[in-house]
Amino acid sequence: MGRKTSILLTVWIGFFVFTFPAGAQDEQWLQYHSEREANRMMPDMQSSTQNAVTDKPEGVKLPEFKTQKPYFVRWTTPMVASGGLWIALDRSSEQGKPDLLYIDSNANGHLDDEEIVKAYQTEQYYTYFGPVKVVFDTEDGPVTYHLNLRFMDYNDLNRRMYIYSGGWYEGEITVAGKKKYCVLIDHNANGTFNDKSLQSGQCDRIQIDRKDRQEGPWVGNYIQLDGVFYNLEVSRDGAFVKLAKAEDMKFGTIRVPETITELAAGGENGLFTFQPDKGVGKLPTGKYRVDHWQIDRKDEKGTSWTLQGTYLNERGDFEITEGAEASLEIGEPVTASLSVRLNGENYEFSKSLKGPLGEYVSLSASGREINNLWKMKAGNEEGTYEKLYPIPDQ
């Protein structure tokens, strides 16, 4: 829904609330912001990476380029009927960096009517653009969106565009009569703010009353606030959210080893983090993927140690059905392995720590990750050389 419409509706809703009891599903409007450093301000923003090509896109009217070899990138977005917008990169001089950019900002399928966007920063292999404005034509009117772009030109095999969202929504909302601050982020940089998925990278993010602005819950069917489940609805363009206390929810149970002290699982229902009680937890019915598991212990000196497993991918998938119990064999045992590779005349060593499902496992003590715990002693047969080396992660 476009922002021009939102201004008018906000006034109408305010009058409605004053006159009648507010419905739980009222649209709560947020304000749009854009910044060049948006992805640094909002850790929840990841990039969409697209390879650059030299073949001219078919059927696209192009501007007169300054050089003979422009590059082309297609940004994928469901906000336009064609499924994406073309971007072209040119140079101020034939031997210079790709420091000029054209983007189909009006989504008409062509680039010949676009103004040049100049890079604000150039480095040896990178050029930076943004925030670059694009306008989507929707049923409710035009919607403005911004992109921040980083182009890498290393060689013919490594030439790609990193595309980040350059904007986000935030503002005050009301939940159960209490004022809370909401931040809405287009995590996968595809132009929409209501993506739900089993895959973490394809879910957008919503933060409610989080001052640190670290990674927040996934956008999903539900969100849990102050121990209460709410139905969550996010407008496609991010302009508003709706929250209503969830009624008649169906739950099932998940069983994990009793050593697991924390489990986070997500899907289209959202992301839920909880502490299993003797290995058992409760989740709304639906399909999930383990985001991470955690085991916490203390040694005889009182030092807190934590094992955390992440990056399970489809190996951590499970389904919760009403009245039934799903189970996962995660956590221990954890297996450490050493890899040795000959690179020219030198040997390279690396270690990995994996869980039962092949997930990456990290170890931390008192909240700090341990990176130099594993060491290797190397020596020659003659005994004239001996040295202790830290082993890096794989």
Rank of each mutant, 00 (worst) to 15 (best):
L8Q: 10
L9G: 01
W12G: 15
F15I: 15
F16S: 05
Q25G: 06
E27W: 06
W29M: 00
Y32G: 14
H33K: 11
E35P: 07
A38K: 00
Q46M: 08
S47R: 07
Q50W: 03
L62V: 07
K69G: 10
K69H: 11
K69A: 14
F72Q: 00
R74I: 04
R74P: 01
T76M: 14
T77W: 05
T77I: 08
G83L: 04
L85I: 09
Q95T: 11
G96N: 10
D99P: 00
L101K: 04
D104C: 06
A107K: 12
G109R: 12
D112T: 09
Y120W: 01
T127S: 10
Y128F: 06
V134C: 05
V135Y: 04
D137Q: 12
T138Q: 15
P142Q: 13
T144H: 08
T144D: 14
L149W: 03
R150S: 02
F151V: 11
M152N: 06
W168Y: 12
E170W: 05
G171D: 09
T174P: 13
G177Q: 07
K180G: 05
V183E: 11
N188Y: 03
G191S: 11
S197P: 05
L198G: 08
D204M: 00
D209W: 09
R210S: 09
K211C: 05
G216C: 10
V219L: 01
G220M: 01
N221M: 09
Y222I: 05
D226E: 11
S235A: 13
S235V: 02
D237K: 01
A239H: 08
A239K: 02
A244Y: 02
F251M: 06
F251P: 03
G252V: 05
T253E: 03
I254R: 02
I254M: 06
E258K: 14
L263P: 01
A264F: 07
A265L: 03
G266C: 02
G266M: 11
G267N: 05
G270N: 02
L271P: 04
F274K: 04
Q275M: 15
D277A: 07
D277M: 10
K282E: 09
L283S: 00
L283G: 01
G286E: 07
I295R: 11
I295C: 07
K298L: 07
K301T: 08
W305G: 13
T306Q: 08
N313A: 13
R315A: 08
A324S: 13
G331L: 01
E332M: 14
V340K: 13
L342Y: 11
L342M: 15
N346L: 08
K351Y: 03
K354M: 09
L357T: 00
G358T: 08
E359H: 11
E359M: 03
V361D: 01
S366W: 09
S366M: 14
E369F: 06
I370V: 14
K377E: 15
E386G: 13
L388S: 12
Y389K: 05
P392L: 04
P392I: 07
Q394C: 13
